[in-house]
Design a protein around this nucleic acid. Structure first.
Length: 105
DNA sequence: ATGCTGACAGGAG
DNA sequence: ACTCCTGCCAGCA
């Protein structure tokens, strides 16, 4: 990985600690990293995340419990199925039940 | 160096 | 419940 930048590394490390069946929001991650970076930076870090790190980026969602709209994880449905398979609770809207699946370090 | 963008969040209408 | 506006900070052209 060429980008050994601190923020990216921080985010990667934290995301890597998210256990199966749990998810985190971008804002939550930003807060855990201590007030610093905005949620956007977290998302940006994910977008540039080296796949060799094998980051469970599909466990990172926005505050609505929804995943990114574009075809970034191989399709939103694909990510949703993945999370569901890991035991993440979904509401009938198709959104994640953050109350039950939010991972708090 | 300057400005725009971005896998977002939070408040207000 | 929804939509719109603003703030956030690093990366990139």
């Amino acid at each position: 990985m060429e980008k050994n930048n601190a923020f990216f590394n921080q985010v990667y490390e934290l995301v890597a600690r998210i256990p199966p069946g749990r998810v985190m929001t971008y804002g939550q991650i930003a807060r855990v990293l201590e007030s610093a970076y905005s949620a956007k930076i977290v998302g940006y870090a994910m977008s540039r995340a080296p796949e060799v790190l094998d980051l469970p980026c599909h466990r990172v969602v926005n505050r609505l419990g929804e995943m990114a709209k574009g075809p970034m994880f191989g399709g939103e449905d694909s990510q949703r199925a993945k999370l569901k398979k890991e035991g993440v609770k979904f509401k009938r809207d198709g959104r994640i039940n953050l109350e039950k699946s939010l991972f708090q370090p």
